[in-house]
Structures are given as structure tokens and as C-alpha cells.
Amino acid sequence: MASSSSSSSTQVKKITLKAADGKHFEVEEPVAMEMETVKSFFVGNEDAMKDMVVPLLNVSSEHMPAILDFYRNHSEFRKRTPPPPAEEVKAFNEAFLENKSDEQLMEMIMAANFLNTKELLNFLTEAAANRIKNKSVEYVRAFFGIENDFTPEEEARIRAENEWAFDGLDED
């Protein structure tokens, strides 16, 4: 699978991850193990840990730093006693989403799905759901990149069925 294992991890337990575009990231083991996909890579293959590069086929290097940052912070939140105040977690999450375009958000959802981490996936999909709440049909279409394949008659009929939902929408 990962044929080129060129990276060396001299530090205590670091794992090298390779993003889809070939860039390498050295990550502390506990952080890397937050990702089920990486974890499953090593199950029953403990010897491999030291010098193996884990290829992450669906994760662009653009999003890796942010995603790793999320894991680091959230695992720290989970371990801390007493648990951190809700405001602190909220502030981190809000800062995380700030300046992220819809497209970037979608890409990260795909990444979280590939990495198989429930916490990140739930967090990102909830953010996506919030972004389309109370928005027009056109907005939702653009958000998901959906192509409208209804005939005008079909669309008119379906819109009429759901007419009640369309007043009081937010500005797009």
C-alpha cells in the first residue's frame, strides 16, 4: 500500500501521514489515533508504527493543519478535569469555522468521513446544517452544488407542496 516509506520519526512516537497531494505531516501518536482510519492501519501491525507513512487518500494538505488542530484541542478538552467551560469549547469551535468557505467546509466533511472520526464529522455536518437553515431553495442548491433536474412543471408542483416553508426565509 504505502510503498515509499522515506520519512523517519526519531521523536517519541510520531506518525507520518501523507495527504492526498503528497505532502507529509508528522503527528504525535495519540493525535493520529483519534482518526479511526489511521488507527485501523496499525491494528495487528504494531511493528509498522515506527517508520511507516500512512497515506490519507481523501484529505487535502490544505485542511490537515486545521483538522489536526481540532483533534489536539478536543482531546485535550476531553481529558481535562474539571471539564472546560462550554464557552471555551464554543469559542474554539467558532474560531475553527470562521473564514471557512462552504466549499472548504464540504471538503473537510469528506475528509472527516474518510478519517472516520465521529466527533469531527458531527461537528462539521452540524455546521453545514446551520449554514442552510432558513435559506432559499436556490441557496441550498448552490451550497451542495446540486443540479436542478426538475421540469418547470414538476418544480412548480413540488414548490406548491412545500409553499408553507418559504415565507420568512433569511436573506441568502
Partner: peptide, 24 residues
Amino acid sequence: IIQTHILTQLDGPTLAAAACTSSY
């Protein structure tokens, strides 16, 4: 992902709007 993670988090009006976007 849309079906199991996003649609499940939408409220009724937004789900109704999503229904009008495409046949899928």
C-alpha cells in the same frame, strides 16, 4: 453523508426547501 449526517440535523422548513432542489 448528506442523508445520514446533514439531513438529520435540519429542521422541517429547511428539509422542505431541500426537497425542492432536485429529484434526488
